[in-house]
Every structure is written in structure tokens, then in C-alpha cells.
């Protein structure tokens, strides 16, 4: 016990590895889920592609977006949805039930950062289905756009994807933190998803007030549109920087709110 503690980031990486390993192991108990997910994912995809195809049956260009470009957006939407359901969703839902059942105490008892443990404890491997469908569709649509994917472009795409995930995580964490005061908040998850779903279509098709909301209040633009733009090779440097800055800011804010909520949970602020 008195051995020198490992460097903190390697320690956290090791924890992440063991969390994910046990999580995947637990998921193996429910493998039927995977095929159900793939089918659900493909069906959802078909209806969305169908409605897009109908819209583009009347025009070649929807507010500056061609059909192929809109398909890239859709692909990124599926990819993002899969990644969030894999990495973020299971943990955020778990926090809500842990607060209700009192088992969050076990996280607070551990000698690690509580936010880290609560946020990265679980991984839903079967939700990779959506991510895979999204990835496949991304590759396919990109090939049809005849854009060549360079290293810089791939890295920019990965960074914007990460930033998008971080933004969703931040919003969800804020909503989950509300559980510390109002124990029953199961349906708040819907807020996240309703906002997220608007990102399936180009933001330009929405009326001005909604577009403003989606850009500034809930930065849906950064979650799907920006990564899609990066994938299509049209992302500007400032936009990439903006995406990363917004993500970092929101995560910092959410983290502060979480700490505030935790203080109330333990009665420190009373």
C-alpha cells in the first residue's frame, strides 16, 4: 500500500481499461441484444434515407446541401448516436438509478475522482452496432462524394467527433446532476435526444429562431454538422478551434455543476 502511486494519468488509463473490460464481460450475458440493435439501426436508417430521398426528389439542392452531402450528415448522425450510446449513455443512466438506490455511495467511497468513475464506469459494447452502421455509411458516402481522405482531414474528423461527444456528455451530466436535488428525473434524457435528433438534417433547413437555438443555446451544430463538414473535407481551421473550445468550456462548466450538486448531495452546502 505504501508503494509510490503510479502517475495519475496512467493510473486513470488503467482504471478505464479495467472498467471497460468488466463492462464488456457483463455485456456478453446479453448478446442477443446486438442483433436486435443492428436490425433496429438499419430500419431507422432506411426511413430517414427514404424521407431525404423524397425531399431531394423535388430539388437537387436543399439550402446549399446536395443529396450526397446530406447523406454524410446522416452517416455522422448514426456514428455519433452509436458512440454516445456506447460510452456516455450507460453511465449517465446509471448515475440516476444509483442516486435513487443509494449506491452512488460506493463511488464516493472510492479513492478516485467521483466524476471520472461515475462517467466512465460502463461501456455498452452492443451499441457499437449503430456506430458501425454509421461508420459504414460514412465510408460509402465519402466515396460517392469523390473526396480524398488525407491524414489531416481524418484527424480533424476524429477531433470534431470527440468534441461532439464531449458536448453531449456535458449536457447530459448537467441534467443528471439535477438528480441530486430532484430524485426522479428519468425523462430528462428525452431533452438530450430531442435536441440531438434535430442534427440529422442540415441546420439550414430550420427556421431562423430554431437555427439560433441549435447553434448557440444547445450547440447541436458542433455535435453533427461540424464533424460532417470535417468528413466532407470542408472544415475551416477556426471552426475546428471553435468546436474544441466550446467542448472544453461546456465540460468544465458541467464539471463545476457536478461538484456543486455533489456538495448538496452530501449536505456540504446546507
Amino acid at each position: 500500500m505504501n508503494t509510490a502511486p503510479a502517475r495519475s494519468w496512467t493510473r486513470y488509463l488503467r482504471m478505464l481499461a479495467v472498467f471497460y473490460r468488466t463492462s464488456i464481460q457483463a455485456d456478453m450475458e446479453y448478446r442477443v441484444d446486438f442483433f436486435a440493435r443492428v436490425i433496429a439501426s438499419l430500419l431507422g436508417l432506411l426511413t430517414t434515407v427514404g424521407s431525404l430521398a423524397i425531399a431531394y426528389g423535388y430539388t437537387d439542392n436543399l439550402k446549399g446541401w446536395t443529396f450526397a452531402q446530406a447523406m454524410v450528415l446522416l452517416a455522422v448522425y448514426y456514428l455519433m448516436d452509436g458512440l454516445i450510446e456506447m460510452f456516455v449513455g450507460p453511465n449517465m443512466r446509471q448515475i440516476t438509478s444509483q442516486v435513487r438506490e443509494g449506491t452512488l455511495d460506493f463511488i464516493l467511497l472510492k479513492p478516485v475522482n467521483a466524476q471520472f468513475m461515475a462517467s466512465f464506469r460502463l461501456l455498452n459494447i452492443w451499441r457499437a452496432a449503430n456506430a458501425l452502421v454509421g461508420l459504414g455509411l460514412s465510408v460509402y458516402t465519402i466515396s460517392r462524394l469523390s473526396v480524398t481522405m488525407g491524414w489531416a482531414q481524418a484527424i480533424a474528423f476524429a477531433l470534431t467527433l470527440l468534441a461532439g461527444m464531449a458536448i453531449v456528455y456535458a449536457f447530459w451530466l448537467v441534467l443528471v446532476t439535477l438528480t441530486f436535488w430532484f430524485v426522479r428525473v428519468d425523462n430528462i434524457e428525452q431533452i438530450v435526444w430531442q435536441a440531438f435528433e434535430t442534427g440529422r438534417y442540415p441546420v439550414e433547413i430550420y427556421p431562423g429562431w430554431l437555427r439560433g437555438t441549435l447553434t448557440y443555446l444547445i450547440p447541436v451544430v458542433f455535435i453533427i454538422t461540424v464533424p460532417a463538414t470535417a468528413l466532407a473535407g470542408r472544415l475551416s481551421g477556426p471552426m475546428l478551434a471553435a468546436s474544441l473550445i466550446v467542448a472544453a468550456l461546456l465540460v468544465a462548466l458541467a464539471s463545476a455543476f457536478w461538484r456543486f450538486g455533489l456538495r448538496s448531495y452530501t449536505g456540504a452546502s446546507a
Partner: peptide, 9 residues
């Protein structure tokens, strides 16, 4: 094993 990593045993 998870606890082993968490407590750095």
C-alpha cells in the same frame, strides 16, 4: 480486480 486497480494494490 477492479478494486485492485482503484485502490492501487
Amino acid at each position: 480486480l477492479v478494486n485492485q486497480v482503484i485502490y492501487q494494490i
